[in-house]
């Protein structure tokens, strides 16, 4: 048996787009292994998410529903994933390296006594052997690794695996038993979720990202938002801009924030520290606007504009608008 299990991510009853990247991996891995892939949806009130998952070409959609799974807690979800993987003789468990996947999957791996290859950007197959390419040292080196345990656990970088599209067929949906959690689950309690609401596209999925740095100060939104609006872009930020409170923390792009690889990335008033580059170097076209001609961001930019951002960005916004008539 050499089947793949995709751990879906659901929020507010709906399937998150992160899931589709893991499915893309699963299609490649299952093909190499000569097996099939299933998608596991966990939660409470996740029928809609399961129905959506059923469009993604899986052999089965497995649903673990229980009141105790209504809010995500790794201590409760990990046993569910591990139990399904064991019971069904799964060879590879995969999820996406979103905040959710990064929290959950290493716990799953430990529970299964499995090796874990995290945040991979490529799958290299040779017959039925799977090797994983993963970035290290803030993306300054890539390692090719394999996992030596009977069950392997993998998380994929969302920007490196294109979202799978619907297959046409409907997968059968099957309810599965919910494994009993360990003692850890009794000692953790969800208190609250302070959500940053935004009507913009999600950073990791956007085709265009406009990011601002420390230089923007209190004018962050005043300068960045209009440009993002004309470009239909997601807004990102450097760590310095987040730390100073000019932008919310979850917009941070970089080694320790979100990894993005849009068609167009515009870096405004960002110096280009190595940790920032790690999060956006994979973008197709990079534009940098910085008043310092020697700023390291220009080393990765396809188009660099040496200018004061406070005049250049409003001008750019105006001209893009005009060019579109």
């Amino acid at each position: 048996m050499a089947d793949v299990l995709v751990v879906a991510e659901a929020a507010e009853g709906k399937l998150k787009k992160t899931t589709h990247s893991a499915v893309t991996f699963a299609r490649q891995a299952a093909a190499a292994l000569g097996g099939t892939y299933s998608i596991l949806v966990i939660g409470s009130g996740v029928d809609a998410a399961a129905t959506e998952a059923a469009t993604l070409g899986a052999a089965k959609v497995l649903v673990a529903q229980d009141g105790s799974l209504g809010v995500y807690l790794a201590e409760r979800y990990a046993p569910v994933v591990a139990e399904v993987a064991k019971a069904r003789g799964i060879a590879v468990v995969v999820g996406t390296a979103s905040g959710y996947g990064k929290d959950l999957l290493p716990r799953v791996a430990a529970r299964l006594d499995a090796g874990y290859a995290s945040d991979i950007t490529g799958l290299v197959t040779e017959g039925s052997s799977l090797k994983y390419r993963r970035p290290m040292f803030a993306g300054n080196a890539f390692g090719l690794c394999s996992v030596a345990t009977p069950i392997q656990v993998v998380s994929v970088r969302q920007s490196a695996f294109a979202a799978a599209d619907a297959s046409g067929a409907q997968s059968p949906v099957e309810q599965v038993a919910v494994a009993r959690p360990g003692a850890a689950a009794e000692r953790v309690e969800f208190v609250s979720f302070d959500q940053v609401k935004s009507t913009r596209p999600e950073l990791a999925e956007a085709k265009v990202v406009v990011s601002g740095g420390r230089a923007l100060k209190e004018k962050f939104n005043q300068v960045i938002d209009p440009l993002a609006d004309v470009l239909g872009a997601a807004v990102g930020a450097s760590r310095a801009a987040c730390d100073a409170g000019y932008a919310p923390g979850d917009l941070q792009v970089g080694q320790t924030g979100k990894i993005v690889a849009p068609q167009l990335y515009v870096a405004v008033g960002i110096s280009g520290a190595i940790q920032h580059l790690a999060g956006m170097k994979g973008s197709k076209v990079i534009v940098a606007i910085n008043k310092d001609a020697d700023a390291p961001i220009f080393q990765v930019a396809d188009y660099g504009l040496v200018a004061d951002l406070f005049t250049a960005v409003p001008e750019l916004t105006k001209q893009i608008q005009a060019s579109r008539g």
Partner: peptide, 22 residues
């Protein structure tokens, strides 16, 4: 449990240009 078989440098980006103005 995880074994490395080799390492590679990241793909190089080709040098960009500085534009004149907006």
């Amino acid at each position: 449990k995880v074994q490395y078989h080799g390492f590679e440098p990241p793909p190089a980006r080709k040098a960009g240009i500085k534009v004149k103005d907006v």
